[in-house]
Every structure is written in C-alpha cells, then in structure tokens.
Design a protein around this nucleic acid. Structure first.
Lengths: 160, 160
DNA sequence: CCGCTCAATTCGTGGGACGAACTAGCTGTG
DNA sequence: CACAGCTAGTTCGTCCCACGAATTGAGCGG
C-alpha cells in the first residue's frame, strides 16, 4: 500500500508523531511545575517581554475570550499580572510577576532539557540538520515565536 | 548569549515550534470536519483496527476516565461504537462505525495533505532527510502509532 | 459631539483531562 | 471450588480550555 513499509515513515507521519511526542513532554514538564501546558506556554511567551491581550491572542492563536480566561487563571496563581498600558487606557499589558519570572525560567530550562533529550539518538551533525530543516519549515509557515530561542546555556554539542 | 543568533534556530525551538504549527493545522483540519482534535486523533487510531479502552488509553496517553468521556462523545456523534469483546466480557472494543470510517478517511487524507503542505519549501531530498530524522526521533522515543503510516496515495515526491 | 473602531471582558455552552471511588468479570492459588 | 486479588471500564466531581455573541468603555475621525 505504501512504498515505505521498511520501517521508514513519511514526513507527514514524522511530523505528526513528533508533535504528539513533544506535546506529551511539554505537558508532563508543565505538570511538574503545577502548570498546564497552556499556562506554561503563556509564561514562555512572556519571558521575552510583556504583551497586550490582542497581541497574545495572535501569538498563541487564541480567541480573545479564551485568552481572558487563561490570563485570569494564571494571574490568580500569581504568575502574571495585568498592567495598564500607559499609551492606551483601554489596553492592558500582561507581564510576568517576579514569581512568574522565576517559574518561567525554571520551566523553560527543564522543558528544553527534556526536549533536547528526545534527540539524543542523533549525532551532533544530525541534530543540526534537523534543526535547520525544522527551522525552514517553521519560518516558511511563519510560526510565531511561541518558544524563545536560546540554548538553555547548553553549548551546542552538549546532549550527552 | 547564544551561538546561533543568525536566524538559525536550535533543535529544541525547532521541535517546539513545529509542534505548535502541526497542532494548529491538525485542529483546523478537524474543525472543518466537525471534529475536535482529540476526536480526530481517535478516529485516526481506529482506522487501523478496533482497540480496547485500556489499549486506547496507552496509545493516546490518556487516563481511563478521560477516555470514557472522549469515546462517549464520539459515540454520541455516531462515529465510533463500543462492541463487546468476545473473549472478555468486561472489555469493550471501540470501532469505527461506517460513517466514522468514511469521515476518518476523509479527515486523514485532508490532514495529510495539509501537513505535507507545511514542507513544500523543502526539496524532495530535504523532505526525505527530515522524514528520516523525525522517524529516528519518534522511534527512539517509541511514540505510539498515533497517526497511521501511509502516503495518502501521495507517491514520494508529490508535493508540488 | 457623534458615530466608528478597537481592547478587553462577560456569559453561556461544550469539550477535555484527571483522580478517586466503584462495579463486574477474570484468574490463580490453596 | 472458593476467595482474594487483579483488571476493564464507568461514574462523579472538579478544574481547565476554547469559542462565539454580546457588552463596556476608551480612542478617534470628522
């Protein structure tokens, strides 16, 4: 039925399954910091800088009303706060609290570690190749910077 | 701060962002078939064969109780059904209904098309390379076959 | 000053995930 | 054979998430 029944999988299945895998890792990591995946994602986005609600909606691809709830819950947990936008009194700037910032950094680092672990079976060169290819894919589909770039303080060839 | 601030992204960010991207595509595709992402996933898994609840839980990484609900809702929509397991009267075998089967096939095909689209910026060789690398990653982390392998009738170098 | 747009919230609905407790059927050991 | 213990699945209560429609209130163009 397929030309590749030799254990190889196609690019579509590869993408879908790796997505499943990363979702699971992300959720599990979040859970250990008493976060939901969505809240974790929110924290990661806000690590860069404060965002307005609409801006956040665009970045996370959520409807405005969904966002209100997410920010509400995260705010209730003391991780983010709404500050008035000095330039527009309708608007709001969502920012990490001190505690949120700390937690975000920890969560981010730990999550990076774990995701990186997924690729430990690859050589450095292969990891670079994978990074390059995925980079092109996300770039060409202008995926928002939903996860900051950085290296977890992990020098290129660290993973093992 | 990082060694790759030249527009390149690391493997971790690549994985996370492509995950975000695929999630969005998957959800959008599901939506157009009046499915939720989870229900779509369920249908895709069941395309291969009927599954028991526990088995499904392991495959989809869901708690038993979560699964009961998911199957309930999907059953209510007439897409799957619970059949008694002939060998174990406690157990149940969840299978696609006729309608569910049709819908699953359509949804699967359309979703494959869209995911494949994500990689249209890559050459055939690059797509193969990406597939190979992701294949290794999912294999080494024994990701369940949450999305069937196949080629949508799409011969290897079809995309474009 | 008025109508318009725009930021964000509120409200109601439904899906989703989980753990704890429970039912009922299977199984193995004495 | 009986019974303890395991296993498959469901129920229940709780919280999170996502959405659209309607709303409030600030900015803005004329």
């Amino acid at each position: 039925m397929a030309e590749k029944n030799d254990g190889e999988i196609g690019v579509v299945a590869g993408l879908v399954r790796s997505t499943f895998l990363v979702n699971a890792v992300y959720a599990e990591s979040a859970r250990e910091y008493d976060l939901t995946a969505q809240q974790g994602q929110l924290l990661c986005v806000l690590m860069a800088r404060p965002y307005g609600m609409s801006e956040l909606g665009a970045t996370l691809r959520l409807a405005k009303s969904s966002l209100t709830g997410l920010v509400d819950r995260t705010e209730r947990n003391g991780l983010v706060e709404r500050r008035p936008d000095p330039e527009d009194s309708r608007a709001v700037r969502v920012a990490l609290t001190r505690r949120g910032g700390r937690l975000a950094a920890e969560f981010y680092e730990e999550t990076c570690r774990r995701i990186e672990q997924l690729a430990t079976g690859l050589t450095d060169a292969e990891r670079d190749a994978l990074a390059g290819l995925l980079g092109r894919v996300v770039l060409e589909n202008n995926t928002p910077a939903v996860f900051p770039e950085s290296d977890t303080g992990a020098p290129a060839g660290r993973t093992r």
